[in-house]
């Protein structure tokens, strides 16, 4: 295994553990916004799609890039907005 892979694997494992720790405390009331918000976070895939743009050089590559960009942008933009819309509805008794 290359040192790079080991470093990536370390980051991945620790991030998983942090995720378990942080998310296991979320109350059931917020499970839908949590899932939707987590959904928005995996919209970070847009960063990956942007990096892909640097290497695209064929017609097929451009087409794939455009579809991937559409998917990722829909995921990230829609995900954050719909989560915000839901959370704005959670009001206290006052």
């Amino acid at each position: 295994m290359s040192p790079l892979l080991l470093a990536d694997l370390t980051v991945f494992t620790l991030a998983l553990l942090v995720g378990f720790e942080v998310i296991s405390k979320v109350p059931a009331t917020l499970h839908t916004p949590l899932m939707s918000g987590a959904n928005a976070i995996h919209g970070v895939v847009i960063v990956g799609v942007m990096l892909l743009a640097a290497t695209a050089s064929t017609t097929a590559g451009y087409a794939l890039l455009a579809i991937a960009a559409f998917f990722a942008a829909m995921n990230v933009a829609g995900g954050y907005v719909v989560t915000d819309r839901m959370l704005a509805m959670f009001r206290s008794r006052s």
């Binding site: 640097a54 087409a63 960009a69 990722a72 829609g78 995900g79 907005v81």
Partner: peptide, 25 residues
Amino acid sequence: VDAYAAWALGAGAAGGAVAGLVAAR
């Protein structure tokens, strides 16, 4: 990035963002 890639990325992302925002609203 080359011009075609820039267009593919820009147009794809713009279309996707609009679709996502409308659906979310």
